[in-house]
């Protein structure tokens, strides 16, 4: 068993939980989102190099921002379509 940096381990779990929480509002449903999120994290579980893990966390942060933007854009366009004059 390789012991990785516990601080990094904490960060990874933290971002996973944050992403999971955001998935509750995903347009295609939570189950769709959770399986894919889990798969994405599981595919990276072999990483032991700290630099690689940090890169992975940065990517997760980026994805988080993208999902935030997706929700914003989706809501904005839906509201716009409803209020716009035909």
């Amino acid at each position: 068993m390789v012991f990785t940096n516990p601080a990094l381990r904490h960060q990874v779990i933290q971002i996973y939980k944050q992403l999971l929480f955001m998935g509750r509002e995903y347009p295609l449903g939570y189950d769709y989102y959770r399986t894919r999120l889990h798969k994405a994290f599981a595919s990276q579980q072999h990483l032991t190099d700290e630099e690689q893990i940090k890169k992975g966390i940065a990517r997760a942060e980026f994805v988080k921002k993208e999902i935030e933007a997706l929700y914003f854009l989706k809501r904005y366009r839906t509201l716009r379509q409803r209020y716009e004059k035909p």
Binding site: A69, F72, L73, R77
Partner: peptide, 16 residues
């Protein structure tokens, strides 16, 4: 595919 952050510049488009 993603890059939605950067597509916020076109949110007022009629049809995407």
């Amino acid at each position: 595919s993603g890059a939605i952050q950067h597509l916020a510049g076109m949110k007022d488009s009629k049809v995407i």
